[in-house]
Amino acid sequence: MSMKIDRRALVSGMGGLLAASQFPTLARADDFPAKDFSFVVPYAPGGMSDTLSRLFGDKFFQITNRRVVNDYRVGAGGAIAANFFKGVKPDGYTALVATNSFFAVIPAVMKVEYDPKTDFTPLMALDSAMVAAVHPSLPVKTMQEFIAYAKANPNKVAYASAGKGGVGHMCGEWLARKAGIQLLHIPYNGAPQAMQATISNETQLVFGPEAYEFIVSKKLTGLALLTNQKRWFKLPDLPTSAECGLAGWAPRSWHTMIVLSKTPEPVKAKMFEIVSKILQMPDIKEKIATVGLMPADEDLATLRKRADSDIAEYGVLIKETGLAAK
């Protein structure tokens, strides 16, 4: 009896010790932030990461009165920034402006020095609308009709992606598997080029938020929004893939901000609070909507689950398509 209690006490005591040794300087959140921030930007100036980093940087300054310095670590599709970020001090003053690729794709397709499950913690999620759209010359108006058409004409439908291993490629692979159809993948050098190929009927199918403009101007036909969550407010008539009978997880792309998981919990919570506050600002809301992103409004635990489910689901897709790191 007493043994049992003792053991329990011992275990919990050890747990506490362990926690204490992990966070030797138990930072108090009311001191935070006490100095300037640095955002690690993994892609070249002018891109979406850079833009988001600057938008958030401005607001961080408004809220905390601490400046944000951008630290550009460009290259290798983000792996350079991620590896660098793994080595920074886990004090919450350095954040990585990232996408879910940093969890689900980069560690699966190349050798990296971090474990996305244990090293990185996401602070927000801004979903890209992965719209599936086809060239209007195809005799289909809905996802169901498209699947029937592709079944009747195997290997006749080619889809364009922004690059091998990118979200667009994953969407195509996912759709082909989920619906049991054959699709030919043609990789392009960036999303605009993939869109161009599809509006000129070089390829017939494409995925991505950029399709919006072309759907509205009738140069493409929208089939579905790939998600098992809600519809996109910009195209309220477009059904989700789940509504089209393709239930469950669908490939997705979301922008996020990452802190190291070793960051003290109170600091993490404080960072999450700042980021959430920024996402509620009307001008930010408007800007984020213009660039085609949808804030997911999830708490830290849900964000963690979101990242983990992407790691699992993308992991399967990547393995099955033979893209995994050799």
Partner: peptide, 15 residues
């Protein structure tokens, strides 16, 4: 340039 247009709430395209 396209990025700049986005930021200003203009979606470059046919319209």
């Amino acid at each position: 340039m396209a990025g700049a247009m986005f930021i200003h709430g203009i979606v470059p395209g046919p319209r």
